[in-house]
Nucleic acid binder design. Structure first.
Ligand SMILES: [Mn+2]
Ligand SMILES: [Mn+2]
Ligand SMILES: [Zn+2]
Ligand SMILES: [Zn+2]
Lengths: 138, 138
DNA sequence: AATTATTTGCAACATTGTTGCATGTGAGTA
DNA sequence: TACTCACATGCAACAATGTTGCAAATAATT
């Protein structure tokens, strides 16, 4: 609901504006992750492209959403859980992208396994992206 | 060497041309993965941008190189091992991207772990991308 | 050497992302 | 409520990235 959204924004010291509220709303309604283009469509182009870019960027910085790398050059974004905050993401779950419908799922219950790196390499972040056919498309 | 490169191309039923030879050579010389932009620079713009796009696409299809998704919307490419062929990639190793120098490593010895997916999901491919500081930058 | 199938470069275009700046708006304060 | 100021937005202009059709060039085949 609206109030909850305003809460999230305030908690991150962001002013509550139309575009931010709307975009955050979209993420809450959506079951999958969203790409920049999706948001443009779903907002019916009521907001400038630049505003959407900047909003997404801000949300990522503030730990409100996280990015999901893809093999097709179109970063997806999805809501973070409560533990994330400015500069500190803790989204260590696996992501699944359906080859059929394109839906990107946050598999919140499946955590990214530990990877043993070679000597000298230090891990900051790890992404696991599985692709194939999702439960709705098989 | 040149002959080996020609061999690879012929094996994939591709004609041996200047751009393909040069680009394949670049991959062999490079220790890390290459993005489209890297190739453009390293070839000193002697080949049209379109040609590079198409060459990379062809190489991926033929199982000569594989793609590496990144969080910054710039797909990297790296040589496949011999097992890959047209439509059949078997590059199940972990990739590491250095936040400092940007180098993208194929950690050939570290295989992608099995991921247990929820009911109804079928896996076609899995990518593990670890980022942090590499052995040269720490 | 001639033929044919493939590859390339160019042009034109589409999409995606970035930056500076003037204007508008939200949040706090009087 | 009205005022102020910092911040957010929209616009314009631009840069970078990616796509397509087509004619010319070139590699492979005969
Ligand atoms: Mn997620
Ligand atoms: Mn690799
Ligand atoms: Zn699906
Ligand atoms: Zn490095």
């Amino acid at each position: 609901m609206k109030n909850e959204i305003a809460e999230i924004l305030k908690r991150s010291q962001l002013s509550v504006t139309g575009s931010r509220t709307k975009i955050l709303e979209l993420f809450q309604e959506s079951n999958g992750a969203l790409a920049h283009a999706d948001i443009e469509k779903k907002t019916d182009e009521s907001y400038d492209r630049v505003t959407i870019y900047r909003t997404l960027q801000t949300f990522v910085e503030k730990g409100i959403i996280h990015t999901i790398p893809t093999a097709d050059n179109s970063i997806r974004y999805a809501l973070c859980k409560d533990e994330c905050s400015t500069g500190h993401h803790h989204d260590n779950h696996v992501h699944f992208i359906c080859d059929e419908c394109g839906t990107t799922y946050c598999l919140d219950n499946i955590t990214v396994p530990e990877i043993a790196l070679p000597e000298g390499f230090t891990q900051k972040r790890a992404d696991v992206i599985v692709s194939g056919i999702c439960k709705n498309c098989e």
